[in-house]
């Protein structure tokens, strides 16, 4: 695993989302204060809702922007999961009952079936397309 050299399609798609989000975040968080540094007169004289613009963009725009970006990222990431047929909720129902008692069995059972590491039927479906092993080890 190397953040700069993703080796599966899923990782490439995921990292694209991550980097776009990251650059948008840099703009939202450090953009206004940098703009204030370079164009102080403009940023402090314009007002918005009574605030000087620079104050509003930092005090409200910073936390608010981070929150909006978080929602967008999580939503897009859910979409990505959908695209790759990943369903995280599927493991929970089955696992709840078996976690404590079956732990050793699960780890041992994994030996004869690569995808059986989650010992749920769903996990096998995910890897059915043959790319499973590649993706696991990546």
């Amino acid at each position: 695993m190397n953040i700069l050299r993703p080796s599966t399609q899923f990782m490439r798609d995921h990292l694209r989302l991550i980097w776009i989000g990251f650059f948008a975040w840099v703009l939202v968080i450090f953009g206004p204060v940098t703009a204030t540094y370079f164009a102080q007169d403009f940023m402090t004289s314009v007002t918005f809702l009574g605030f000087p613009l620079h104050y509003f963009l930092v005090a409200v725009g910073g936390p608010g922007g981070a929150l909006v970006l978080s929602v967008i990222y999580s939503w897009r990431r859910d979409k990505l999961d959908q695209k790759y047929g990943i369903d995280h909720s599927s493991t929970t129902g089955v696992e709840t009952s078996s976690v404590d008692t079956d732990q050793p069995a699960a780890t041992d059972g994994g030996v004869d079936d690569t995808a059986g590491k989650n010992d749920t039927g769903d996990a096998v479906e995910v890897t059915d397309d043959g790319e499973g092993i590649e993706e696991v080890t990546d």
Partner: peptide, 13 residues
């Protein structure tokens, strides 16, 4: 690698 795998993991795994 397992930390980034798209494959769902069990609850206590």
């Amino acid at each position: 690698r397992q930390c980034h795998s798209p494959e769902p993991m069990g609850k206590d795994m």
